[in-house]
Design a protein around this nucleic acid. Structure first.
Lengths: 331, 331
DNA sequence: GAAGATCACTTATACGAATCAGTCCTGAAT
DNA sequence: ATTCAGGACTGATTCGTATAAGTGATCTTC
């Protein structure tokens, strides 16, 4: 039914091996340009698609790149990252397999991943010392981790990146003339406590450099919490001048609570989000926030994955995702 | 390196063929229970994982179930559906491969999917007459579509399901004593115009039966639109008693606009969302909305996919996802 | 002008699981 | 006593690709 490389070979009048050499541009093979074009033409005419199962069997490794995204609501930013990575990997001849299966049975997952024999595992979120990842590394699967210092060629990208976003937030608020800023964070920022500490240190440094006073408050993203926080600020006369919210959802939750207490954003309090979710644009007041561009980043990830899948151990430096402030109404 | 079925065979003292028969419970093979347990034990001891590339090559079909989710921010509801399906398929020995690659080059996608030779394609969102899906069907890949009448064993599930959610919304609002309800919908509900018409008809019927007056208004989910809509209601003295929003994001956008104009939810207007996103719980006022349970539904989908992948053409009836009203503050 | 070296390919084999087509029993039926 | 029917397996082959190991040519080089 399906077209095989043998069919292409027959049509081009060469051997199946030659077809393989040509279509994979195998180095060290002397094949004339005439033959090459003939083969490519034949493959094209027949609409030849290499069978990835056969290739995987032969190579001992599939073209799949597994990306664990456990129990995850793909927030737009992340969806964007995943999508961009998928596109970039495709250009490298690999394809991204996001894995949404819940992560309780870690070893079950390891089994599934080993069956697939993926070219690599791309971990964007998991803590770098996750046992499943460790096990895969031991099994010889290349695991690229965004949270592992030194991996992917940069110091703990997720860490550095998140930190710089928060710094940008503070800088924007400072530039708008706000002297007292409240950073509203979840009870625990990220998984690794060292990451959190570095992030806070960076924020404090930024505040000092910009000459603003920074207050940090923890708030669980649970029903009632934003409202209670706002009421407390009012009661204690501690209403901040500006708020740097953990993300757009925090921002919206807090704005709604403020509004319920009669506090107006941005007139009484400036409020800045982070992530640029669609709702932030349509919300009233429209959210001033930070948006991310993953294109260059994803391209680099794809190349790093490809290199590692091909056996390279090189960890040359990669660019971080770039972000920029989106100025709207809330700050 | 990896354990093969031959290794298992050696350990169990049988032939490789026997191992295959036992582990796949191939019907029509006479193999004693003693041997079966011996083989299974050996496989277990060695931690044998069948190589899916080899299996795919031989069978001409992988265990992958491709699920196109193009250009998509996975809203929690959908993420939940995907995750539940992934789990259910895994139990059937299949695994879900969500495909996030942008859908502009439809034929590029078809190529990629054909290379993978998936057991089936599970389409939860695409219009049923999508050319890529058509092409795959012609290529002999089983395509299960949630939007195709008669497919998956029920009449256009997405259609029926969305309709019944909207009906529930109206019924709840009516039960709360609201006589004038405004349904706020996007400019075009869904892709298929017939689907839309049926949905509207169902809503009108429900309104009539419940003895309430239903107004339908279109609103683009774009910056400024909610605010302008609200201002118009005020200007024309048309403030609705209750609003049935298209989803939770619409609901939040509208509440924020109302609030900016001094209209209080739920005191002045009752407002109901749909989807139960996390932000809806933390928002002030907390959103009254509709939540969905996909477990039974996903299980059935998994079984249908499995059956179709195994060549069955049966389209017995499947249950719809079940939904229920979550009563909070907004209505 | 014989011994390489280089070019342009082809032949043959291996990857790991599934499956068709046997083989060798044991026991019942003719 | 011979045939036959399962029962309980095994051997050999197959899927489509990648690649190591050739095979003839033609071209250098001393």
């Amino acid at each position: 039914m399906a077209v095989t490389s043998a069919d292409v070979a027959r049509r081009a009048g060469v051997s199946q091996a030659t077809v393989s050499y040509v279509l994979n541009s195998t180095p060290g093979q002397a094949i004339s340009e005439r033959t090459r074009t003939r083969v490519r033409k034949a493959a094209d005419d027949l609409g030849y698609q290499p069978n990835s199962a056969a290739r995987g069997l032969r190579r001992g490794r599939t073209d799949a790149v597994v990306c664990p995204l456990p129990g995850l609501t793909l927030i737009p930013t992340l969806a964007n990252l995943v999508e961009t990575c998928a596109g970039a990997l495709e250009r490298e001849g690999l394809f991204l397999v996001p894995d949404f299966t819940p992560r309780d049975g870690a070893s079950a997952q390891v089994k599934a991943w080993r069956r697939l024999a993926p070219a690599a595992v791309l971990d964007l979120l998991l803590p770098s010392d996750d046992p499943a990842l460790e096990e895969l590394r031991r099994a010889g699967v290349p695991v690229l981790s965004g949270n592992l210092p030194g991996q992917l060629g940069w110091e703990s990208a997720g860490d550095v990146y998140a930190r710089s976003e928060r710094v940008t937030q503070l800088e924007y608020l400072a530039a708008r003339g706000h002297r007292h800023v409240l950073a509203l964070l979840p009870p625990r920022l990220g998984v690794d406590i060292r990451v959190e500490r570095r992030s806070l240190a960076a924020m404090r440094r930024t505040a000092r450099d910009a000459g603003i006073e920074l207050r940090v408050q923890r708030m669980a993203f649970e029903p009632g919490y934003p409202r209670r926080a706002v009421q407390e600020w009012i009661r204690n006369g501690e209403m901040p001048e500006a708020i740097a919210a953990y993300n757009d959802e925090y921002a919206i939750a807090v704005i709604s609570a403020l509004s319920a207490e009669g506090v107006v954003v941005p007139d009484d309090v400036a409020l800045m989000g982070l992530d640029d979710i669609p709702l932030g644009r349509t919300f009233t007041p429209a959210l001033t926030t930070i948006t991310v561009d993953f294109t260059v980043f994803a391209e680099s990830i794809a190349q790093a994955v490809k290199a590692r899948a091909d056996g390279s151990t090189d960890t040359s430096s990669l660019p971080l995702p770039t972000h920029s402030v989106v100025i709207r109404e809330s700050a």
